[in-house]
């Protein structure tokens, strides 16, 4: 492998700069994606938190098709998980209910047990979605109150919380490990 991993961050709206910051800290090269052609040659892609309604409207001309065709690993947080789930792009086999914890006054942060790790992960949940149904083959990596909040489905990683809003980079590191494995296997880019 030569050079840092090139990871796209969908930059339509939301906290894409925070994701880019974490990627930079981990030595990857973040690329803001606003048009379909910007997906070319990327090793992986992050769909950030934001307002899923607004983002889904703004990707209608072209970008949505580009996301469907993208073959590398994809990481979605909050709105990103909603967009990747069954009811939108249908790329991840989970049924997600929006704003399922309630309005902003019910937004919260809590410690999460991350699979395979002794130190808990601080989860920041903002008007967060809930995962109602999980398809077979979807792996649960973290739960909150017995409900899945971090999941992996093949080359997709999705979280209902915002690891990009804390200084803990472990979830992004896992994603970059997935990207590296894919690049080694010769997949990744289009």
């Amino acid at each position: 492998m030569t050079g840092p991993l090139r990871i796209g961050v969908l930059a339509i709206q939301g906290d894409f700069r925070e994701h880019a910051g974490v990627l930079r800290r981990l030595g990857a090269d973040p690329v803001e994606v606003r048009k379909p052609e910007q997906l070319d040659g990327l090793d992986g892609l992050i769909v950030p938190g934001g307002e899923s309604t607004a983002i889904s409207l703004l990707i209608r001309d072209g970008l949505e098709e580009g996301l469907r065709r993208f073959r590398g690993p994809v990481f979605g947080t909050c709105a990103g998980m909603i967009l990747l789930g069954r009811d939108h792009l249908g790329l991840v086999d989970v049924a997600v209910r929006r704003n399922a914890y309630g309005r902003q006054v019910a937004s919260f942060e809590a410690d999460l047990d991350l699979e395979g790790e002794a130190v808990p992960l601080r989860g920041v949940f903002i008007r967060a979605p809930r995962v109602d149904v999980i398809g077979p083959g979807v792996e649960v990596l973290a739960e909150h109150d017995g409900e899945p909040v971090l999941l992996r489905d093949g080359r997709f990683l999705v979280a209902s919380f915002h690891p990009e809003l804390t200084d803990d980079t472990r979830v992004h590191e896992r994603f970059l490990d997935m990207v590296r494995a894919e690049v080694m296997a010769g997949g990744g880019t289009l």
Partner: peptide, 20 residues
Amino acid sequence: MAELGTMRVKGGLAEMLKGG
């Protein structure tokens, strides 16, 4: 335990509105 209304949670919603 879940903590409500922390500065991170309050400011977090604004982070999600950026670019909008």
